[in-house]
Amino acid sequence: MKSAFIKAIELILSGNAELINILQVTARMSLTSSVCALLIGAPIGMWLGSRRFRGRDALVVINRTLMGTPPVVCGLLFYLLFSGVGPFRHLKLLFTVEIMIIAQIALITPIVIGNMETYTAGIAPRMMETAKGMGFSKWKTFLLLGNECIYPIFSAYLLAFSRAIAEVGAVSMVGGAIAWKTNVMTTAIMQYTNRGNFTLGIALGIILMGASLMINILITLLQKRLSK
């Protein structure tokens, strides 16, 4: 473990080109997919949590089911859709970072929706009653609801990012873990471990945990600052 930790430090300091490429692909994939999932999922979650209509409970149940989608099932679905026999084969996205991002968005958007829906459903009835009592427009009420949800939006983003950076099943299926192209931290760890290079695997694991820790600290500090 100690040697792996030293190896991790050495790897970072050495400026190893392959490691830097893996870090870049990981960062691009995780940040893009988590931000997209937040932009799509947060308004849907807020809308679902603040409205009462026929079929709402069914939508909530469907979303909760999607929250538990096994990554490999998601990977398989996108593999079939974009492979040579799939309807989207002409897009030629299989084994690219783009398809990895799309698969991750599909995986983590329901998590964002679920979190936002639960929080919003708790505050919306009182908040909207108060807003309507003052004659606020629907748009002003929705913007205010967004302001009330700043804190959970950060929590939802953290969850989304954590899932994105740690995910391996879907990205390895649709990305193919191609060196210098679609290899990310998690798939690289798997490759090194399969080759018996545990030290390098652990080193990458330490870097992955460190990166995740840094992002979490950053978001938590921002969250605290905004909630003051």
Partner: peptide
């Protein structure tokens, strides 16, 4: 119409 509910909400 202006309406004050029994339990009003304090915006953050």
């Amino acid at each position: 119409v202006g309406y004050l509910p029994q339990k009003s909400y304090g915006f953050h």
